[in-house]
């Protein structure tokens, strides 16, 4: 069973090493990890896809929570959510195949981002199975290289995974 976690972390140096290190040393597997800025400049947002049963997920979540830099964790896959990946594929072309490839680009609603004398570089976003299908259909033409981001995900509708008001206040101890 895969789970997609949205993890809000303080934007501090080393936070990625802390999170990634936690997964490896506790023996949890990361399927994919994407990290970038969120709507709040002090907060980065990670989307982590993990494989495991409920018990493993419970441990992953609890161990992540123990990291001081981790502010909030949401398992968006327990709810209605959308997820996307972006991929760039550099594919070999010949005059005879160019048209066919461009047709595939159309069908998959991909975009050509670079044209070379013997190559096309194509960008496509979408959910995982679409990207897999696109990659498969281009394979016969010869994929020179491919780069794929980790998944990013978001809850559907009015629900969000932002920080609670209570967590924004300064604490007095």
């Amino acid at each position: 069973m895969t789970h997609t976690l949205t993890v809000l972390v303080e934007n501090t140096p080393g936070v990625l090493a802390r999170v990634a290190g936690l997964f490896s040393r506790r023996g949890f597997n990361i399927d994919s990890l994407a990290v970038g800025r969120s709507e709040d400049p002090g907060v980065s947002r990670m989307t982590i896809v993990v494989e495991g049963d409920d018990q493993i997920l419970e441990q992953v979540t609890k161990q992540l929570h123990k990291l001081v830099d981790v502010i909030k964790i949401t398992d968006v896959s327990r709810d209605d959510f959308v997820d996307r990946e972006l991929v760039m594929i550099k594919v070999k072309t010949e005059t005879s195949t160019r048209a066919e490839i461009m047709q595939l680009v159309d069908i998959f609603r991909a975009r050509i981002v670079d044209v070379g004398p013997k190559t096309l570089t194509i960008e496509v976003t979408g959910y995982e199975s679409k990207i897999n299908a696109f990659e498969k259909s281009l394979r016969p033409f010869g994929i020179m290289e491919m780069v794929r981001t980790g998944k990013v995900a978001m809850l559907r509708g009015f629900k969000s995974t932002t920080i609670d008001e209570s967590q924004k206040k300064e604490d007095v101890y």
Binding site: V70, I163, E170
Partner: peptide
């Protein structure tokens, strides 16, 4: 500082 802010530590 009197106050500190640790949003991820509660």
């Amino acid at each position: 500082p009197k106050n500190i802010h640790l949003p991820g530590y509660r």
